[in-house]
């Protein structure tokens, strides 16, 4: 039998004490797992503007199906489609939006019974208004007002404020000119 020196005994005692202390800490202190917190949702002003744009685009599609004779209507629809592209590009800057898009949460059409975004008017999806051009003019005017309000309410200190304010202002101005074209030229 090998002799155990005093030094070996001391080392083993220290090791046992360290292991015992570690085990005690592990039992008494709660283990906190790091959880990934979800990124903040994208600004409501932008998602609401995009929702209005989708409703308007759907209305243009319905109007075009009924009135292909209007040569300018397709051009106005193209403008509205371009608004959607630009808004989605800006929304890509917000991690919450990217997460929602990859999870396929946002839908392209309003679900039945959902509340329309502020500023949207017109007939419900699927129905055919008596005068689709007049309905488009009304929707464009309402969307222009709502987008202007979103532009004015945007905080100046927000990281993307310069780009967002310019975009929302430009979209509002475009929609106002659409309302005029729909109200005058197409009458």
């Amino acid at each position: 039998m090998a002799d155990i020196t005093r030094r070996t005994l001391l080392h083993r005692a220290l090791l046992a004490a360290a292991l015992g202390g570690g085990a005690l800490l592990g039992v008494t202190r709660p283990v906190r797992h790091k959880r990934a917190s979800p990124p903040p949702p994208p600004p409501v002003a932008l998602t609401a503007t995009l929702a209005r744009q989708r409703q308007l685009l759907a209305s243009y599609d319905r109007a075009l199906a009924l009135q292909r004779a209007h040569p300018g209507l397709a051009g106005l629809r193209a403008d509205v489609a371009a608004h959607g592209t630009a808004l989605r590009e800006v929304l890509q800057r917000y991690p919450g939006w990217r997460l929602a898009v990859t999870a396929s949460v946002p839908r392209t059409t309003a679900s039945p019974g959902s509340t329309p975004p502020p500023g949207s008017t017109g007939s419900p999806p699927g129905s055919t208004p008596a005068d689709p051009i007049a309905a488009l003019a009304t929707m464009s005017t309402a969307a222009a007002h709502a987008t202007s309000a979103a532009c004015l309410a945007w905080p100046a200190t927000e990281a993307n404020a310069a780009e967002v304010v310019a975009l929302l202002g430009s979209i509002a101005a475009c929609l106002a000119s659409h309302a005029e074209v729909l109200g005058v030229t197409f009458r």
Partner: peptide, 16 residues
């Protein structure tokens, strides 16, 4: 623009 090109009287991003 309506006088110059009646089929394309608007632009998507005025001022931009």
């Amino acid at each position: 623009r309506t006088l110059l090109s009646p089929s394309a009287p608007t632009v998507p991003f005025p001022g931009l």
